[in-house]
Amino acid sequence: MEKDLQELQTLIEVHFESRKKEEDELIQLKDRIEKRRSERAEQQRIRSEREKERQKRLEEERTRKEEEEAKKRAEDDAKKKKTLTSLHFGGYMQKLVKKRSGKRQTEREKKKKILSERRKPLDIDNLSQDRLKDKAKELWDWMHELEAEKFELQYQFTRQKYEVCVILDMISNTSEKI
């Protein structure tokens, strides 16, 4: 009987130990599940933030493209208006061109042609105030560059003129000696 009692106690102890191990495993499993849930929630939050950023970028790109298309349409409309207005004077201008085609172009006509090729249309009708300021600054910088180029060319011309005069003087001096 004592033997049975001892055996029963060992079985009870073994049972309680296995139950304690199972409870510990269960607690660890619950902790892992909770940890995984929190990680998953964090991943979902990060994923949703990325998706929002992607949507925002797509929206910005879409608006930028729409603005570019609107600008392009406005430029096309301006070109159409320009061609339509030039059509009114087209017959007269064509007669002038035909009349002058046989003659050599005068310097004034050459300059006008060059200037008309260089001149850029402004197209400032549908620009915001900031864009107008930027455009004005851009034109100012361009004008400044042209003025600097003009100054350098004038200086170069003066220098070349001086060099030609010096060479002519040298030639005239050598011819007088001979």
Rank of each mutant, 00 (worst) to 15 (best):
G90C: 01
L87N: 12
R119L: 07
Q28K: 15
R32D: 10
T63Y: 06
Q129W: 08
R47D: 10
D141R: 09
A136G: 02
Q43T: 08
I46P: 00
S101E: 15
E107T: 09
K120A: 04
A136W: 05
E39H: 11
T63S: 06
R62P: 00
K112D: 10
L29Y: 04
Q55D: 11
E39Y: 04
R37H: 05
S101N: 11
S48V: 10
R62M: 03
K135F: 08
L58K: 07
E68L: 10
E109M: 10
K99R: 08
D123P: 00
Q94N: 09
A41F: 06
E68W: 02
R37C: 02
H88E: 12
L84C: 04
R54G: 02
S86H: 08
D76G: 01
D123I: 03
L115R: 15
L87V: 04
M93Y: 07
A136N: 04
D130A: 15
K72N: 05
R45Q: 13
T63W: 07
A78V: 00
D123A: 06
A70H: 08
L132P: 00
E23A: 13
K111L: 14
I114S: 06
W140D: 07
A136H: 05
P121Q: 03
E39M: 10
K120R: 15
R40G: 02
K95G: 08
W142Q: 15
S101F: 08
R36S: 08
K56S: 12
K95W: 05
E117Y: 06
I46C: 13
R100L: 14
R104F: 07
L127S: 00
F89E: 09
S116A: 14
D125P: 00
K133R: 13
E107K: 14
K81A: 11
K120I: 12
D123C: 11
P121H: 07
